[in-house]
Design a protein around this nucleic acid. Structure first.
Length: 564
RNA sequence: UGUCCGAUUGUGUAAUGGCAGCACAGCAGUUUUUGGUUCUGUAAGUCUAGGUUCGAAUCCUAGUCGGACAACCA
């Protein structure tokens, strides 16, 4: 793709290594220049942001090269798979913004054809039925440095194998009694080529085929053939499948089928979180989090509930790049992507999280003033709203200091501060309780500064947010932070596991008081509390009780200054 | 002590034998009725050793470091 820069030069946008391969294939008219990818999840868990990278890659490649991308469920292990997961996966892929149209496939749809392929392999002498136990097979396989030994059943005749395989299908044998194996090379340095099992007996109902089958094909056999059946051209997967590629190619070649090219890239990792299905499942099952969609989880549904947008995740997937090198992405990049998106899109509101009462002493008790507030300074077309100013208001506790350090721009005794969209006030008195804590601040307001303007041109450094004591409403805020305290959750003491690094403060629930314009806000709405962060309305929210999730804080350069 | 893969600023990612660039993070400023945003500037990198070449991050050799592989999981 060519981009024109400011000075009119044509700049070649750099390609990742997969795009390079594809463009080379197109130049060579391989597959008649067709590009067809697929996203092949196993429905045994919820999708996470690592899958999002793969989804964006596969669908993105198809789109970029005018090709197609299929959604295919790799559902060959009925013991672990459920419809619940199928549904959530479809929902998440759609939510991310991708459409597989009528190309929704299941490996289980191919069971009959896969069976026929296995029969062909047997007939060609490339597969045999083996009676060894699980344990024997493992022992015979050898180790990466020691060659394996051939199965005692490797020399069965084609007829015997055919008969046995058919009887396996008919259910004449118990689980584990027999398997079908590919006949390759027990001394291969690649463990996957040491006569791998391709069919096993499992008398278990499958979520789609019910009790039709009691033998199920293994991944290596199923995946390449499913790709081939669907006419996939580029089969993109993660690095750990690199050693499987010779097997992938072996099945395709032995059966003489359309040959997709498997290409491996490095999976996504992000610091301060975990990304394996096993661990995410563990966090859910052992109740370290509240569910798959807990906003602290790196799952797609968790990020969605947290307030992330599909655009921000797609942009993130773009920014992390695609390569073969192992990588750990800074969480700050993800945060950058969501801030960038929400900054442009969301309406601003004011809310106070740690309230301090502020009384305007020079106005009447029933003073009320409706002030105009800009909804989004980044997008004036989003209009304005009214906020009501009253004699008693609340400000953030942090926005007042009795003995402020240098460079503190907010309220302190004798000093002025601007109340956002309202007036400039000067602190005249501080009321304390018997323990010496500040419980109330008295100010005078300057009526000439309505709207926060300074007609006299005077400079007021600080602007703080506020809510009316009379009109503000209460809400629950759920403040989320990183799930783990360590960048690498595996960085742990001897004898502990990664869960010891769970952040005890990853969720803080607290009350806040917010402007009453938020009263009728609906589930899913995203907005910014000025000077605090981006929030969204949680699904637990209702008319009686508003619940807001903090998606991400605003960048906070004051905290850096403060530390110095 | 096997096979395969990888190694570029703190983190990612480009440069396809010809000026090591971009983003995030950092730092210093600018602008600002959000200590947000914007804009500007700045520091920081080719794992090591040989070789090929006029010229090497790129090609070759050896080493070092990291990862993957020994489910009837995917």
């Amino acid at each position: 793709m060519d981009n024109t820069t400011n000075n009119g030069d044509i700049e070649k946008k750099s390609l990742n290594f997969i795009e390079n391969i594809i463009e080379e294939d197109i130049r060579n008219n391989k597959n008649d220049g067709r590009v067809h990818t697929r996203f092949p999840p196993e429905p045994n868990g919820y999708l996470h942001i690592g899958h999002a990278k793969s989804i964006c890659l596969n669908f993105g490649l198809a789109k970029k090269y005018n090709g197609l991308c299929n959604l295919r469920f790799d559902d060959t292990n009925p013991a672990k798979e459920e419809v619940e997961y199928v549904d959530s996966i479809k929902e998440d892929v759609h939510w991310l913004g991708f459409d597989w149209e009528d190309r929704e496939h299941f490996a289980s749809d191919y069971f009959e054809r896969l069976y026929e392929f296995a029969v062909t392999l047997i007939k060609k002498g490339n597969a045999f039925v083996c009676d060894h136990t699980n344990e024997e097979i493992a022992n015979y396989r050898g180790t990466p440095t020691v060659a394996g030994k051939e199965s005692l059943f490797i020399n069965r005749t084609v007829e015997e194998n055919l008969d046995l395989f058919e009887r396996m299908r008919k259910g004449e044998f118990k689980d584990g009694e027999k398997v079908l194996r590919a006949r390759i090379d027990m001394s291969s340095p690649n463990m996957h080529m040491r006569d791998p099992v391709i069919y096993r007996i499992r008398h278990v109902d499958h979520h789609r085929t019910g009790n039709k089958w009691c033998i199920y094909p293994m991944y290596d056999f199923t995946h390449c053939l499913s790709d081939s059946i669907e006419g996939i051209t580029h089969s993109v997967c993660t690095l750990e499948f690199e050693v499987h590629r010779p097997l992938y190619d072996w099945f395709i070649e032995k059966l003489g089928l359309h040959h997709p090219q498997q290409i491996e890239f490095a999976r996504l990792n992000i610091n301060y979180t975990v990304m394996s299905k096993r661990r995410l499942l563990e966090l859910v099952e052992q109740k370290y989090v509240l569910g798959w969609d807990d906003p602290r989880m790196p799952t797609i549904c968790g990020l969605r509930r947290r307030g992330y947008t599909p655009e921000s995740i797609r942009n993130f997937a773009e920014k992390v790049g695609v390569a073969k090198r192992e990588n750990i992405i800074d969480l700050s990049l993800l945060e950058f992507c969501i801030r960038e998106d929400l900054n442009k899109k969301t309406q601003r509101f004011m809310g106070v999280f740690n309230p301090l009462k502020l009384v305007i002493t020079n106005c009447p008790d029933d003073f009320e003033d409706n002030l105009e507030a800009v909804n989004n300074p980044e997008d004036l077309s989003m209009g304005t709203r009214n906020v009501t100013f009253t004699k008693e208001i609340f400000i953030e506790n942090d926005d007042f200091m009795e003995n402020p350090p240098k460079k503190y721009f907010r309220l302190s005794p004798g000093n002025e501060v601007r109340l956002r969209y309202a007036y400039i006030v000067r602190c005249t008195d501080v009321i304390k309780d018997d323990k010496g804590r500040v419980v109330e601040v008295h100010c005078t307001y300057d009526p000439e500064t309505r709207g926060g303007n300074t007609p006299d041109g005077r400079k007021v450094q600080g602007t703080i947010h506020w809510v009316s004591g009379k009109y503000a409403i209460e809400a629950e805020a759920r403040l989320y932070d990183r799930l783990f305290v360590k960048e690498n959750p595996d960085d742990k003491e001897e004898g502990q596991d990664y869960k010891a690094n769970l952040n005890p403060h990853s969720l803080i629930t607290q009350k806040c008081i917010v402007e009453n314009n938020l009263k009728n806000i609906t589930h899913g709405t995203k907005f910014q509390f000025e000077r605090i962060g981006y929030f969204c309305v949680d699904k637990d929210s209702n008319k009686e009780k508003l619940v807001f999730n903090r998606t991400v804080t605003l960048k906070d350069s004051w905290s850096k200054i403060e530390k110095k």
